[in-house]
Design a protein around this nucleic acid. Sequence first.
RNA 1: GGAGAAAUGGCAGAGUGGUCGAAUGCGGCAGUCUUGAAAACUGUUGAGGGUCACACCUCCGGGGGUUCGAAUCCCUCUUUCUCCGCCA
Length: 423
Amino acid sequence: MLQVPFIRDNKDLVIERLAKRNIDAAEDINQVVALDEARRGLQTKLDNALAEGNKLSKEIGGLFKSGDIDKANVLKEKTSQLKVDSKELTEALNNTTSALNELLYKLPNVPNKLVPSGNTEDDNEVVFKEGDIPILDDDALPHWELAKKYDIIDFELGNKITGAGFPVYKGKGAKLQRALITYFLDKNTEAGYTEFQLPHLVNEASGLGTGQLPDKEGQMYHVAADNLYLIPTAEVPGTNIFRDVVVNEIDLPIAITGYTPCFRREAGSYGAHVRGLNRLHQFDKVEIIRVEHPTKSYEALNGMVAHVKTILQELKLPYRILRLCGGDLGFTSALTYDFEVFSTAQDRWLEISSVSNFETFQANRLKLRFKNSEGKNELAHTLNGSSLALPRVLAGILENYQTKDGILVPEVLQPYTGFKIIN
RNA sequence: GGAGAAAUGGCAGAGUGGUCGAAUGCGGCAGUCUUGAAAACUGUUGAGGGUCACACCUCCGGGGGUUCGAAUCCCUCUUUCUCCGCCA
């Protein structure tokens, strides 16, 4: 959620930047400013009424003590009108505040100046490209065929047990997946991230905290009996660690990593590109999360990008990095870099990581602050990224490492798998 | 799942209707003493909002109620602990 004081002071900039997302926010922004002014006016009036009431109560207390009941009763009369007033003011204040919040919840984050304008993923800007795209035989197979051929992933079995999008990994497939998870976690902890094991279900407050609720309600699986949501990403439990927290400035930055399964309903996304591992309802992901000082967050974002790069370099996978355009930028993000790995047999790029700086957008909802050098509480910046999303990395490995004799295991993973080839 | 108890400042722990935002201890901070440190002693120290700074408002697990006035009384929810049952 955007900060009202920031909107107040930078009205034109906010409107101009939000235009990168192809939205005309002028009306909403003006309304935010107006509602905020009304809110503050009501708050002052209410505070004054309450102060008056407090004063009278104290006087009445004193009069009762000294036995001056008549005078006390006169003052009591006076308080009744005050009570009516403050009740009305409270109601008006609540109405104004919720109207303001409703509006604020609807407004996405203000894009960073680097964000290119554009509508669709075609307008994303390729900022980096690395790795050779292997030249495969004519009879090279897409990963879902390979999965069947070597009996390492069973899509139909998942279908039977649960439904489409819940594959079953078997034998060397399961082992390779586990090897990747461990490898990613090791890389992350080596880079200074502390490993966490987090809950896979979250409550409503956590969903609100990271911005999945209220706007993306339909994308999460909901456990109605207990009003809990299955996490769509470790970002939700991971970032909510810091909900309602004031950290010390010297404790920044905070860097954590965690492996979790992720559950996404993916309502409405059917079509040509959802085969095999490309789009699942349940998948595994290792996430990195940072809490940063506002002056350091973009440096940190670059650091996260560099970190993910080293992993892909070690895996020797061809990949590219995109700077997301305004139209493709997530609701809560100010700047996002997507990593895509080239899926040779499908002849297309697959998104395997998304690294974002949310600046204070999440921190504002979360009330995640740090005590600055002046002793004042200030909102921290939050960032997160995938390192990495498993299924598509797996798809990339299977397709790019296929040979006539089988699928080779990338060298860095061999200590983790204990085998060099899947055949 | 059943029965009972509890939730107060960084922590421990008083406080059952009126100068209580809250005793006391520990911790923190500052000082005295000391070559330095420790100990001892003295002072200081809850949080959030608001203000240039004050004023002022809010907060004793969450929400609601009674009252001129609630940490204190009532309702409700949540969480924790103890005992019993079940159990990976």
